[in-house]
Design a protein around this nucleic acid. Structure first.
Lengths: 332, 332
DNA sequence: TTGTATGCGTTATCAT
DNA sequence: ATGATAACGCATACAA
């Protein structure tokens, strides 16, 4: 890689003159500027980023810590983060916690040595369930700003970007009750132990209670055979006339199982799930979804964190990104 | 952040002594080592990574450039990359090209200033279609090693990790012909312009020709209404008794459309698609898939690239990661 | 207008 | 066993 020193030697001028010329300083004559720039172009000179970082004590890099990236929600958030970061001339270092507290903690510690200017985190399932989050506070007290999204720890004071979990499921459930006159609405969930899962369930329960209906919740742990459980439930509860899935997969399975049993969707049974971009393509009839604005969540996260990094007096805030009920063909 | 200088001042010794003590140099007495380490622990000292990078002229960071991360294949490859990189004590900077040549080129240029020690790239659709890949060669000639995976440019000499695209589809097609005695096999594709798509189609054609059958290919461009096209094809070609999908989405749609028409799967019609982890959950009956070892591809990519970075005389090679035909319930 | 000197934090070489 | 000094590449305060 070409350095300032090399350019200076070739041009028989000093390093600082070269530096100033390249930065278009008013101190330097137009003629030297041209000489310098021409040679720099010719040798494809690029200022060494590491040296700039050391000098400025800022990396213009953000550490992004995600539980997983195979879940399309986090993948799409990452998309938003990457695009927005690039626009602001920031790089991102990505770490995956695999839902493990240990990996999450290690990643934060490893990057807390000047590698990044700030963190964007969605807390690992394990960290959230066990309420072990001191490592996040450590980063903050080390003056490394943190922004949390989606999976949030209320006790930690930092910027947050969240989805309207309660509101969106409440709305979806109310839609089924009021617009479709459904009476026996099942909620299926495989994420009830997460903060977001709890909020979504509460949204469902509120709508159910307000309508004096009975709450029916089918909790499916990871290892369970989801297909079978849903199938059996529908067999044993033929009165079920609507299903709300609070994740991006069980809704599709529910549609498949209902069809198998002979239910007509949406005549006999409505289904609303969660989803993103291509989720609706994957079922027939096309599933109705609560569409989380994952990309926007990523965008907002970067925007807020960078404001924190660059503004003199940044004010901590929590932004709620509203979801959108996107009706497909699995509702009337 | 605590620095060597601060430790030195507090202990009334020189910076170099502190540095050597922390690096457990034999030159330093046990007693000073202990004094230094104790204070370092107390103040939570961590060597500044940026300074180390400048000094050593190595970042221990790899630039990963992906076309997208919402495609579960690339998401899972990224998972493998991240896990393996962490194991080798490397960080990854992730850039998404969004299938755009311009973005891909810009990302490479931006990171070719000392930010990373090497690149892992899956070429953007646009770069591959337009055969514009000089930016990749530029990186290589700048002495920044490059590894390409999945979407590969044959003309560029560098390490490669690829899937057995030809072989896997050939095998799947042969399975349908020989084991299931299928005679009218349709191939559906929305990626025929990619190198991988072309290879997969060739694998299909070879098997078809060898069996003296007729080749039927349904090419679906991105914007098309995939559901409708598949539906119409099946209506107009009722003799169709098997479908091979060479992506991770049209196979599921095909199953749904076939059921809609009244076909019994797998009695009347077999379906084999491409897929990963949870793809099989999404259809009923569970789809049979060519399972690409995406995680392993990521792992191998890191391993090979790091070998290139660290070994004295690395030998350029191409590794083929074999896929696995994973039968579900959509085949007999 | 140009050049010299200094420092960012670390490590390595060379005294003492 | 410890310390002084230089160097990585860049940017800037200060000197000429």
């Amino acid at each position: 890689m070409t350095t300032l020193k090399e350019l200076a030697k070739l041009l028989n001028i000093s390093v600082s003159t070269v530096s100033k010329a390249l930065n278009d300083s008013h101190e330097i004559s137009e003629i030297t500027k041209r000489r310098v720039n021409e040679l720099a172009d010719k040798l494809n000179y690029k200022p060494n980023r590491i040296a700039q970082q050391l000098k400025s004590n800022r990396t213009k890099t953000i550490g992004v810590i995600l539980p997983t990236v195979t879940n399309p929600f986090f993948a799409e958030v990452l998309h938003g983060i990457e695009t927005s970061a690039t626009k602001h001339k920031y790089d991102i270092i990505v770490c995956l916690s695999d839902e493990s507290l240990t990996k999450e903690r290690r990643s934060i510690e490893l990057l807390s040595n000047g590698s990044v200017d700030g963190f964007i985190i969605a807390v690992a399932r394990e960290s959230q369930v066990e309420e072990q989050t001191t490592h996040i506070n450590t980063a903050i007290s080390n003056k490394i700003p943190v922004l949390m999204f989606d999976r949030v720890v209320n006790e930690i004071l930092c910027d947050k970007v969240v989805v309207d979990d309660f509101q969106s499921v409440h709305e979806a459930t109310e839609y089924l009750i009021k617009k479709e006159n459904r009476k026996h609405i099942l909620l299926v969930s495989n994420i009830e132990e997460l903060s977001v899962g709890k909020l979504r369930i509460k949204g469902y329960q509120k709508a159910i209670e307000d309508a004096n209906l009975k709450s029916n919740i089918l909790k499916l742990s990871k290892v369970d055979d989801v297909e079978k459980h849903i199938h059996n439930y529908l067999k044993n509860h033929p009165e079920t006339d609507a299903i709300v899935s609070i994740d991006h997969i069980t809704g599709i399975i529910a549609i498949n199982m209902a069809k198998k049993i002979g239910k007509d969707i949406p005549k006999d049974l409505s289904v609303i799930g969660f989803g993103y971009e291509h989720t609706q393509l994957l079922s027939s009839p096309k599933i109705s979804i609560v569409h989380q604005k994952a990309y926007e969540i990523g965008e907002m996260s970067i925007k807020l964190l960078i404001d924190n990094l660059q503004s003199e007096h940044h004010k901590i805030e929590t932004i709620v990104v509203p979801s959108e009920l996107k009706l497909g063909e699995s509702t009337k």
